[in-house]
Each structure stands twice: as C-alpha cells, then as structure tokens.
Design a protein around this nucleic acid. Sequence first.
DNA 1: TTGAAAGCGCTACCAT
DNA 2: ATGGTAGCGCTTTCAA
Lengths: 350, 350
Amino acid sequence: MASAMNKSSTGNVKRTRKAHPQASMHDVARHAGVSLITVSRFLRTPGKVSERTRQLVEDAIAELGYVPNLVAGGLASSQSTIVSMIVPFVSHGVFAEAIQGVSDVVDAHGYNVLLGHSTGSVEREEAILRSILGYRPAGVVIQGANHSERTVEFLRKAAMPVVEIGTLPETPIGMAVGYSNHQAALAMTRHLIARGYRRIGFVGTDPATNDRILQRLAGYRQGLDEAGIAFDPALVLRSPFGIVEGRQLLHVYRSMQPMPDAVFCASDLWAAGMISECRKQGIGVPTDLAIAGFNDQDIASVIDPAITTIRVPRYEIGRQAGRMIVETIAGRSVERMVDVGFELVVRDST
Amino acid sequence: MASAMNKSSTGNVKRTRKAHPQASMHDVARHAGVSLITVSRFLRTPGKVSERTRQLVEDAIAELGYVPNLVAGGLASSQSTIVSMIVPFVSHGVFAEAIQGVSDVVDAHGYNVLLGHSTGSVEREEAILRSILGYRPAGVVIQGANHSERTVEFLRKAAMPVVEIGTLPETPIGMAVGYSNHQAALAMTRHLIARGYRRIGFVGTDPATNDRILQRLAGYRQGLDEAGIAFDPALVLRSPFGIVEGRQLLHVYRSMQPMPDAVFCASDLWAAGMISECRKQGIGVPTDLAIAGFNDQDIASVIDPAITTIRVPRYEIGRQAGRMIVETIAGRSVERMVDVGFELVVRDST
DNA sequence: TTGAAAGCGCTACCAT
DNA sequence: ATGGTAGCGCTTTCAA
C-alpha cells in the first residue's frame, strides 16, 4: 500500500474512465517488450539506446501509430512547444504575413503557433491572452504596444520571452521588432508637401483604439507643422478598413470646400478604393487629387495609377520575432529592440 | 508514509526542480485558506461553492494573478480546448480568411486555434499533423483533400472531429465544407466560350501537388470539350502564385503563335499582373486579350479593367468548419458535407 | 458544501 | 544501456 503508482494497488479496481483510443507510451513499451522509460529515452535521446531496442521500439511505434502526448510531456517537463501569437485580425494581409513569418521560423525549431485575434480591442486581447497563457507557451508574440494594464502585468510575470511587433514601444514589455509609424507617416507627409500639396487629408481608423494610426496621425501632423501648414481636423476622416469604404470617403472629400489636393490614407485599401472611384468619376489622379497609401500591399503596384505608399517588411518582422523567441529560449542573448525600417515607395498616384 | 501526495513525504526532501514563477492552484488554495479541490470547483462549477468561499477564492486568484494551467487540466480531464488548423500558407489571402472564420467561431466557444502550414507539401502536412496531434486537439480543420496515406490514417484513428475545407472530397475523412473547383472552372470556361473566345490559356501551379488546381484544370478541359475545342497543352502554364509572375506570364503568351485570345488564371494575382503588364504594353483588355481570374480577391474589383472571376465565400467556409467542429464536440449531429457554392462574377476583363 | 485519494501520460532523478 | 519511483498541476470518483 505504499505508492500511488498503479491503479490496481487500490482495492477498488476501477478501469480507465474513458475508452481511450489513442496508444500511450505504456502501450508502446509493452508492445516492444521494454520498459516505458526506454521508450521515452528512445524518443528524446535515441543515441542512448541499443540498436536492438531502437528497432523494437520503432516497430512498436509504427504499428500502433503512436503519437507522443505533448500535453503529458509538457506537464512533466514544464516545457512547451507552443508559441502564442496575438494579432488584431488574422485575415488582414499585413498580419497574415507576420504570422507566416513567425510560423516559418518557429516551426523549423519544433514549435507550433497558437493563434489569437483581438479584433483590435484591448479587452478582448486581455481575454485571449489569459486563455492562451493557460497553455504556458514557450513564448508570446503580440501585435502593437497598446495593451491593457493587466495584459502587461500578465506578460511581465509570465516569465517567458515576449516580442511586441509592428512598432517600437517606448517601454517594451520584453523585446520588440518593428518600425516607427511616426517616422513613416512623417516621411510620407514630407513627400506630399515637397510635391507641392498643401491641403492634405488623412484617413485612419479611430486613433484611440489603434496605436499605429495614432502614431501615423502624429507623424502627419508633425509634417504639416514643419511646413507651417495649419492642421485642419475636418480633413481627418475615420473609417473601417476597406476598399468600399475608400470609395465612399472620396465623396466625403469631394463635398468639402475647398477640396483637399491630396489624401494620405493610412492603408492601401482606402487608397485603392478612392483611386478606383476617381476613375469612375473622371477625377484625375494625381492631377486633381493626389492619393497616398500605406503598407505596399499587392494592390498598390497594379492599380492605375500605382499607389505611392510606405513599404514595411511584415514577413521579416514575423521572422525576426520568431527568431528572437527561439534564441531567447535557447539561452542566447538577443537584441531588445529591432528596427526593421520602412521605405517610401513613390509611384504615380502623387 | 502512505501516499505520494506530498513531496515532503519522501525522506529525500527535494524541492521543486525549477523555481516556478507561476502560481498554481495549490497556491491559490493556501492563500484562500481552502482546499485545492474547492478552488477547482469554483473554477468549473461556481454555483457549487458558498458565497464566502467564492469571495475568498476570487480574491486569492486576483491577488496571485493565477492563470489555470490548461496543460495539467487537459491531461487530467482528457479534454482539450485546442482546435488545430492546417493550411498550405497562412499569408495567402484566401486561407487567411478561412482561418479568421474558424477562429471567430471557435474562440467564441472557448477554443483556441493551433495553426500549421504545409507549404503545399503533403509530406510537410503529415509532419505538421503529427506534431499537432501531440496536443490531442478537440478537432482538426485541414485544407483540401489531397493528403498522404498516413495523414489520412492518423486522422481517422485520432477519433476527433475532422473537417476538410475548400473542396468537396469524394471520400471525406470526416466532414467537409467547400465548393466544387471543377464546376467553378467549368462555369468560367463556359463563360469565356460564350463570349466568343476560342484559344483559351490556363495558368495554374503544378496540378500534381495542388488538388484545387487539378480540379480547375479538369473543369477547364471539360469546358473546352463541350465546345468541341481541342485541348492544347502548350496553352497551359505553370507558375508560382504572384503578381510579378503574372507579368512574366503575359510575355510567354505573347510569344506564342497564334496568341491566345483569352487566359483563365486560376488565381486573381496572376490575372492582375497580366492586366497591369498589358496596360504597360498597350495591349487592350479584353479587346486584344481577355483575362479571367479566380477567388475574387480585393484586387479584382479595383484594377482597370476589373477582373471577371469566381467568388468563393472563404470566410464562410471557415465559419462553417468551426461550427461543425464545435457542434460535433457538443454531441449534436452535423452534416457530413456542406457545399457553400461559388459565384461567377463577370466584370470588364472578359 | 467541502475534502481526500487516485491518476491523466509523461519526464527527471537516481540507481543498477 | 536500462529501469524504478516520484511527481508535473490538475480533475475525477468517492466519501464526509
């Protein structure tokens, strides 16, 4: 009656609660005629078992279609092969590329990506994070630097590598890889002003809930300031992302008097919609209205006129973030902050 | 010396292997002055604990920042809150939308998405699946119906809900939600023929490794057959996906004699690249060359001329797949196969 | 309403 | 090179 090791040590013989279809390590061991621990050893340090044993275990695994239970393994070893990633939306092209980047890198190191999306809400982000942290992931990649206090607190005390992506936070939680949205928007605004535009509109989502937009707006305002152009709040429009929305925004700007001579859209989708609508309405771009975008998505280079925009290496951001997680786990020292930069791509729309 | 419950019951007093920063349920229980099981009960059936206990435990959880360990819970209960999803590429718009659909639905039911990408290789798909199955997920969503034998075998014996998406397999592994790539391509080919085109090119990736393309190619051939047009293998081009690739493909078609009078691209990206290049080269679309696409991506409606294409409800496919997983887990009976259909969207490029 | 004991499937430590 | 034992943090009987 000493240990709790074996179920039959209890007088009360209860069999497994559920019929369990999946083979366990125990099954493999029996099948191979070796002990359980030998199977485990074969799996993690194959060099330490004899040729004969290796063969036996290999056959048993193949025959039973055994797949090691990472849940049990993770619990026993306090290690995880999960890297969690939280983005506002999976389906937005720019985030999808970052996800692909992270996934490409961590997959190659035996990790899998557990994905969450916040729909841009810090409350939902916090909820997602809690749930995801329940898996005690090996690392966390999270979009942006705009989090709830509790999100930050959780992340700090979680004691695992954290990478914020897409921005360069003033006080990063752990590591960060991104670019300066402020500088990028400033560069674009300077470009527009250099081209001679003076009445420049700005399209974004609500800056209160989107720190990227907030920073781009700040860069835009700084650009105006530098040129001595007064900021006109009426020229700043808020809208959900989208091409259709871009079409509608054009009409809003057209109804203003005086009309703007240029619009800086904080996403290519709006710019594409506006350009398409301009074509339909017979408005010349950039002669009657210059239109600039952001992100250099596919659409920017094929629409006519092609869109002047800011190119950001999203996939690269993902790769770097993945790399930083993996390196940190491996105990190597890693940069705290990586600036991947951006590029002003001047095309025909301005 | 009876049980193995407490570490100090062993003569050999060894403390926890690792300094463990995260609070455990045990810690919460001590903090609240109740037993561990009461904490567990509070978490899963809050109605069964007294008001006083509830308060105590709630406070302790908040104070310690306790996050339940789902790895341990999953092991103990043989239940999982993970839904695995495998797609060829995360960053391809069409897959990203499906991921978003799955994620939206399963998140709402307390599940998280564990993501894998196969890069279109069945071998990699198998490897990813193995690793993902190690987490004993509650369900699996997998793109396409083209899998290795072992992949199918693993999935069948895994005894969990499986949904194949994007196609309507002849022999689904479990459930499926998608549309007929064959019928969609047939519809497009018929459209082109009805418009008077006779020498119709086809652009796809390697049909041997991509069953969607294989089926679209078959639909295209059937369309030609119906009209009594001989299939000309020289008109079928293979290429990686992409706009840049589309530009190059145009030159390949231009160098043919006779030149085709229409090209059916099995992705909008190729079509967009070709149209953009046509504009640059002064080739009239559709007057000199008609160009059709597939997927109705953003780009299709804003490029000039707008692309005639096939619209597929990708997000809806994801939602349905998520729904089918969740319902199956809940024990409700679910359709084995859902056809979400497609839509021929005729625009100006044909 | 609360608690004790057993064990989920695996790994770590120690022993042989 | 191989095996035994304890225990990862939780849930599930069963008992009080």
